[in-house]
Design a protein around this nucleic acid. Structure first.
Length: 467
RNA sequence: GCUCCCUUCGUCUAGUGGCCUAGGACACUGCCCUCUCAAGGCGGGAACACGAGUUCGAGUCUCGUAGGGAGCACCA
């Protein structure tokens, strides 16, 4: 049988880190085994589901490159089907109508808690065979098996056994006529032929009751893999307050999609000591059976390291588009300045994100807006700076070819001619080019300014050196 | 309260009874390189939650304790 996995988010918000990892693992498992990855939107919660959230999830997956093979399927479009299956269960005596009000159920629950036992529905209507009545409290409950236990081998957690005594007759159809989650997922997973249910481990407790529904429906039970949670840096549950929010926030913060993917794939999974995985490698190496059982914390420092790794190793031309997106985002026109790929090469050893890169690239796309006074004092207003700048200006103006290598030659010539150390020449030039004491190597910094720009900046610096 | 799950350096992890005086990576840190900042190279500190067993031998198996987490809904 061909493998089919699915990612089934409920559209109540953006695609967050945990959801993205679940989606990634579902996708990878399908890819490695030549299977199909299905996307299903679980929107039966009318109160909280929104169209914007659906779009946000789609956007997030798209940015990460997690393409689904089938779907998206919407549960709200399958209402007739759930009804049909529930009717079948009713007809076969595997489900029944119950008429307690929510208040009565609540009371039952509180009473059980007070007595120190697990709250369960008491099964009042289970074998009563009362004629159907059109009561506003009417719900359909599933007849959970009474004795025995449910056993399943979770691909990450291992064997889990659950006594049926712990399970009660859960509601599968609410009084408002909507199916409940535990029922809808099972019907969907059966209909969509899902063979591997990969989801967050907050669902482990639901699994036994779902398995009972599979049995009642006479459907084959899929494999389950329950993924541990991703915690915030402080070990607490991830939330907006921790900053680790929408995956799109990571885009805004300057992370590369494959860097995030690499980080996520290693969070809870490993392949020996390997840290760097291309998407193609993940596709062949990832196996959900090798996922760890324990929760892990999200560490931006490591993500940043991976991000820089890709910044340094990817083809600058391929990075250009995403980089230009960041330039425009902060109001820079990539066409009015050096080639973005050249800027990437100059800055990639110095920043960890594209966002930082864009900010530091501003030097070459716009006039210097802020001068570091300390830099002027220290490197321009010196005995040797004016002469060094003058000489550099003359030589740069006469340079045959405008390349970093040639410019490097100029800086050396100036140093030799004036009998100065490289630092005494590079420093004033650096301040002249950027207004600060920090920049990439001086030849690249000058190169990126362009010949006209470089000469103009030297003039400007000369004026400040003498002023 | 009840049920289920989890526990190796600060963090992510390797480790499936002897290869472990516990390996790698991020972070931190020392030195080197150096026109600044980085990047890079070479080093360093840093962990098997605890207690009993089983065994010739336990990070690895069993039980218990402690600490975390999840669920116990007409929410997914």
């Amino acid at each position: 049988m061909t493998v089919r996995t699915r990612f089934a988010p409920s559209p109540t918000g953006y695609l967050h880190i945990g959801g993205a990892r679940t989606a990634l693992y579902c996708w990878l498992e399908a890819r490695r085994r030549g299977g199909t990855f299905v996307l299903r939107i679980e929107d039966t919660d009318q109160e909280r589901s929104t169209q914007e959230a659906v779009q946000a999830i789609l956007d997030g997956m798209n940015w990460l490159g997690l393409r689904h093979d089938e779907g998206p399927f919407y549960q709200t479009l399958r209402m007739d089907r759930y009804r049909e299956v529930a009717d079948r269960l009713l007809r076969e005596g595997k489900a029944y109508y119950a008429y307690e009000s929510k208040e009565e159920i609540e009371a039952m629950r509180n009473d059980a808690m007070a007595r120190g036992v697990k709250p369960r529905y008491n099964g009042y209507y289970r074998d009563r065979n009362e004629p159907y009545r059109d009561d506003p409290n009417r719900v359909i409950r599933f007849k959970n098996p009474v004795g025995g236990s449910v056993v399943f081998d979770d691909k990450v957690k291992g064997r889990i056994e659950w006594s049926n005594e712990e399970l009660d007759d859960l509601v599968i159809f609410r009084s408002d006529g909507f199916p409940t989650y535990n029922f809808a997922v099972v019907v969907d997973d059966i209909d969509m032929g899902i063979t591997e249910v990969i989801r967050g481990d907050d669902h482990v407790n639901n699994t036994p009751r779902q398995i009972n529904i599979y049995h009642a429906l006479g459907a084959p039970v899929p494999e389950f893999a329950h993924l541990p949670m991703i915690l915030g840096p402080d070990g607490q549950k991830l939330s907006k307050r921790h900053g680790a929010v929408s995956v799109m926030q990571y885009r805004d913060d300057g992370f590369l999609p494959h860097a995030l993917l690499n980080y996520l794939v290693r969070l809870g999974w490993s392949h020996g000591d390997q840290e760097i995985f291309s998407v193609a490698e993940m596709n062949t190496l990832f196996d959900v059976s090798d996922v760890n059982k324990a929760a892990s914390r999200f560490d931006v420092a490591k993500l940043s390291w991976l991000n820089q790794h890709y910044l340094k190793n990817d083809d600058p031309l391929e990075l250009a588009a995403e980089f230009e997106w960041h330039l425009r985002r902060i109001g820079i026109d990539p066409d009015q300045g050096p080639a973005p790929a050249d800027v990437i090469v100059a800055l990639r050893d110095r920043v960890q994100t594209l966002k930082e890169m864009a900010e530091r690239a501003r030097t070459w796309y716009a006039p210097i807006s802020e001068w570091d006074e300390k830099a002027i004092e220290k490197h321009l207003k010196t005995d040797t700076a004016p002469a060094a700048l003058e000489d550099a200006k003359t030589r740069l103006a006469a340079l045959a070819e405008w390349t970093p290598v040639a410019i490097h030659g100029v800086v050396e010539q100036v140093a030799a001619a004036l009998e100065l150390g490289m630092g005494k020449v590079a420093a004033p030039l650096r301040v002249a080019m950027t207004g600060t004491q920090i920049s990439p190597s001086i030849e690249h910094t000058i190169y990126l300014a362009g010949r006209d720009g470089a000469l103009a900046r030297i003039d400007d610096a000369l004026a400040r050196a003498r002023g």
